[in-house]
């Protein structure tokens, strides 16, 4: 049954999210402890759905609460030195959170559920300013960022497109070779009307 398969995937993703949170928590266990009640509530709602109609709205709201909680606590880990956190585990955790978002949105769209309302509710409950969520995130995991910066500082091996005159030296010491010149040309782009 398609519905159960969606929920099973959601539960699997949440389980993986919890496991990856545990890996980056160190001895603090903040994220894994905070998201566990949400995980258990989702599991209970799914179990309840086996004997009565599935309450998708409640499941989605809880998944959003879980994701928002995890994201907020992860941000507060900025003060932990990057070297104490394995960048691979951090990437794994973030990838799981994104998978959770994608799965939650998919389920909401399939059931015609207003996910914006659920998100707003979750932000209000947690005292989060939605406007603040729109700010670009400051990348806190210096370990992973350094790796990127080092990669981009290497000479050559890069292809560049767009307005490369804005690229800061810290990201790239790219001196476009004559062969790369066509890639730098500004390309006319079609304007897509707002839906």
């Amino acid at each position: 049954m398609a519905e159960n398969s969606d929920l099973k995937k959601l539960q699997e993703i949440i389980k993986e999210t919890w496991k990856s949170a545990y890996k980056i928590d160190g001895d603090k266990n903040l994220i894994s402890t905070a998201i566990k009640p949400h995980m258990e509530k989702i599991n209970s709602l799914v179990d309840l759905g086996k004997v009565e109609p599935v309450n998708y709205e409640a499941i989605i709201t809880e998944a959003i609460r879980l994701k928002t909680t995890a994201k907020e606590i992860e941000r507060s880990y900025v003060d932990i030195p990057a070297l104490e956190r394995n960048p691979l585990y951090v990437s794994e955790f973030k990838a799981n959170l994104q998978a959770l978002s994608i799965m939650t949105v998919n389920i909401a769209v399939d059931r015609n559920i207003d996910i914006s309302d659920a998100m707003q509710k979750a932000y209000e409950e947690m005292g989060i300013d939605p406007e603040q969520q729109e700010e670009p995130q400051i990348w806190a995991d210096a370990g992973a960022l350094d790796e990127y910066m080092t990669a981009f500082k290497k000479q050559g091996d890069f292809k560049a497109a767009g307005d490369t005159d804005i690229v800061p030296k810290s990201l790239a010491n790219i001196e476009p070779s004559p062969q790369e010149q066509p890639l730098l040309a500004r390309t006319p782009t079609a304007k897509i009307p707002i839906a």
Binding site: N112, S116, F158, T164, V167, I174, T189, I194
Partner: peptide
């Protein structure tokens, strides 16, 4: 439902935008 997919105009538009790619998939 208040949820809908919304396609916006190209990100580049009036922005200066650059895409950098290397052979390691960075």
């Amino acid at each position: 439902s208040g949820f809908s997919f919304q396609e916006l105009e190209d990100f580049r538009g009036e922005r200066k935008t650059a895409l950098l790619v290397n052979n390691e998939g960075k």
